[in-house]
Nucleic acid binder design. Structure first.
Length: 152
DNA sequence: GCCAACGTTGGC
DNA sequence: GCCAACGTTGGC
C-alpha cells in the first residue's frame, strides 16, 4: 500500500470532474520520471489530488488507484496533444493508471499551508521549482496530510 | 505576464 | 557525449 501525490490543473481536470466521473484514466503524462512512478503504482494505493496552476494551488482531495498499467490511449490519437508518433500499440511507451474518486476535503490544503507543515525533503511539492506531476509520499507524511485535512 | 527550474532536442 | 537553444511547468 503506497501513497502518491498527483497534479492536475483544475481548468483541465479537477476533483469535481472526478467526483462526477468516479473513475478516470490519468492520461497525458509525458515525463519519464512521472511515468515510471505511474508504472510502479498498484491497485489500492492512495493518491492525493493536487490542483496546480490555480489560485491557490493545493491538495483538494483523495482518490485511489483502481487499475494499474493502463496503456494511455492518447498516445495513439493523432487529434490529441499527447499523440506520440514514436509509440506503437505493440510496444506502447506511455502507461498510466485508472483512478477512482474517494473524497473532496472540506478543508482544502493550500500550498502555503503545506509549506508551513512540511520540509521540501519529505514533501517534494513544496520544493521551489518542482515540476514533477506524480510523486511518491511516505506513509508518515500521508498520515500528517490527512490530519491536516481533518483539522479546522 | 513574468520568470525560475529543468527536461528535451539536435548540431557538432 | 557535450551543451546551447528551446519548450513546458507552475508559482507568484
Amino acid at each position: 500500500m503506497k501513497y502518491w501525490l498527483m497534479k492536475s490543473e483544475p481548468d483541465v481536470y479537477s476533483i469535481d470532474d472526478l467526483e462526477r466521473d468516479l473513475d478516470e484514466i490519468w492520461d497525458g503524462v509525458r515525463n519519464y520520471q512521472a511515468r515510471n512512478f505511474l508504472k510502479s503504482m498498484t491497485v489500492g494505493d492512495t493518491a492525493f489530488f493536487y490542483h496546480s496552476n490555480t489560485k491557490p494551488p493545493g491538495i483538494a482531495g483523495l482518490m485511489k488507484i483502481s487499475e494499474e498499467m493502463v496503456v494511455d490511449p492518447t498516445q495513439f490519437d493523432q487529434a490529441s496533444k499527447y499523440y506520440d508518433a514514436k509509440s506503437t500499440p505493440a510496444d506502447p511507451r506511455w502507461h498510466t493508471v485508472t483512478v477512482t474518486y474517494i473524497e473532496t476535503f472540506e478543508h482544502y490544503i493550500s500550498l502555503n499551508e503545506l509549506k508551513d507543515n512540511f520540509d521540501p525533503d519529505e514533501l517534494q511539492v513544496v520544493k521551489r521549482g518542482n515540476r514533477l506531476s506524480v510523486m511518491p509520499i511516505t506513509e508518515a507524511v500521508a498520515k500528517r496530510i490527512l490530519t491536516l485535512a481533518k483539522s479546522e
